[in-house]
């Protein structure tokens, strides 16, 4: 005999589970965890830098390739335009990184986009673009971001938040937070007044025995890269706000598989995308491929001298563009 109450219980079980999950989710908002201490603090510091300066500025946006590979201080020195490095951890995804730059940019600013190749395939929040880093970052450090998400993104975000993360957040809420998770080098204290990382040559950085070369540049972008619609909307929004955008390739460790036909096609597709949107591309992709000895822990992270070299090369391309834009006088 199957009682009717079984079906009521079943329905109640679903609703109760959903309610419990939602309650745990809400309890997580704004509770800092150790995982995103570095990203949270770095971004907070950069936000202050951006809010306390006025346009016109060059705001460098991207992942850690730009954070460790472009010196805003050097760029400012070479171009004469106030520069701030807003780049952070690429694991946050294109959605968070672009939102961060756009929210801090003001009319008259220039956003210099130097996204890692993977970021061109990371779009609006969904199953593929959400990961433990951006989930943790939004929940712990930037819950206000939830209000700017589309409905579908919000649903994905809600569904994709792992149980373990929810448990940690609830525990953190009850115990007053997890405290700071600071590593020797990944520390917001080493961000200077331009938003640059200054401890690029620290002995504390552990150089792995072998750095893997697995950038998306080698495998190529899919037919419809997830990042393109997001970038499209970003560029439209910037244009509406009179924020100029200039794009650059990320610096990457040189290796044969990044010089294949597929790699060339990938770089060309990115260039074409920007060209179609009226955005110029500073530099060329192969000039951004650097020798292995220029990197420390991943194929995207440059050491300090290579970082300066790279910035000087970049500035060579950026300067004429700034002149054309009327932001600096011709030499």
């Amino acid at each position: 005999m199957v009682r009717k109450s079984f079906f009521w219980g079943f329905s109640f079980g679903i609703v109760a589970a959903l309610g419990l999950f939602l309650a745990a989710f809400l309890l997580n908002l704004g509770v800092p965890t150790k995982l995103t201490t570095w990203t949270g603090e770095v971004m907070a510091k950069k936000k202050v830098l951006a809010l306390t300066s006025a346009p016109p500025r060059i705001l460098v946006a991207g992942g850690s390739s730009a954070l460790f590979g472009i010196s805003a201080r050097e760029l400012e020195l070479l171009t004469g335009v106030r520069s701030i490095n807003l780049a952070c951890h690429a694991g946050l995804g294109t959605r968070v990184l672009l939102d961060f730059a756009e929210k801090l940019a003001r009319p008259g600013d220039v956003i210099l986009l130097a996204l890692e190749y993977e970021l061109y395939n990371s779009g609006y929040f969904d199953r593929d673009s959400l990961n433990e880093n951006n989930i943790d970052y939004v929940l712990a450090r930037n819950p206000g971001f939830l209000t700017r998400m589309r409905t579908a993104e919000l649903v994905w975000f809600f569904l994709m938040t792992p149980d373990k993360r929810l448990r940690r957040g609830v525990q953190g809420r009850l115990s007053g937070g997890e405290g700071r998770g600071i590593k020797k080098v990944y520390n917001a204290d080493s961000i200077n007044g331009w938003g640059d990382e200054i401890l690029l040559d620290s002995d504390a950085r552990e150089r792995p025995r072998k750095i893997a070369n697995n950038s998306l540049l080698a495998s190529g972008l899919p037919g419809q890269p997830a990042g393109f619609p997001l970038l499209n909307d970003f560029l439209v929004s910037c244009a509406r706000q009179n924020i100029r955008v200039l794009a650059a390739y990320p610096n990457l460790m040189d290796c044969p598989k990044y010089r294949t036909e597929i790699a060339h096609q990938t770089a060309d597709r990115i260039q074409k995308f920007f060209r179609d949107h009226g955005v110029e591309m500073a530099d060329s992709y192969d000039r951004c491929l650097k020798p292995a000895e220029d990197f420390f822990d991943t194929e995207y992270h440059l050491l300090s001298v290579p970082c300066l070299r790279r910035t000087r090369l970049l500035a060579e391309s950026v300067r004429p563009w700034l002149v054309r834009q009327g932001l600096i006088p011709p030499q």
């Binding site: 009682r3 079984f6 219980g9 079943f10 589970a17 199953r127 994709m160």
Partner: peptide, 25 residues
């Protein structure tokens, strides 16, 4: 027995399952 308690348990399990297959490839 299929009563209210097993119903609640299975409903709860169904939510976990639904969430798992929605987020998994």
């Amino acid at each position: 027995p299929l009563n209210v308690w097993s119903g609640i348990f299975l409903g709860f399990l169904f939510w976990l399952v639904t969430r798992a297959f929605l987020v998994a490839r």
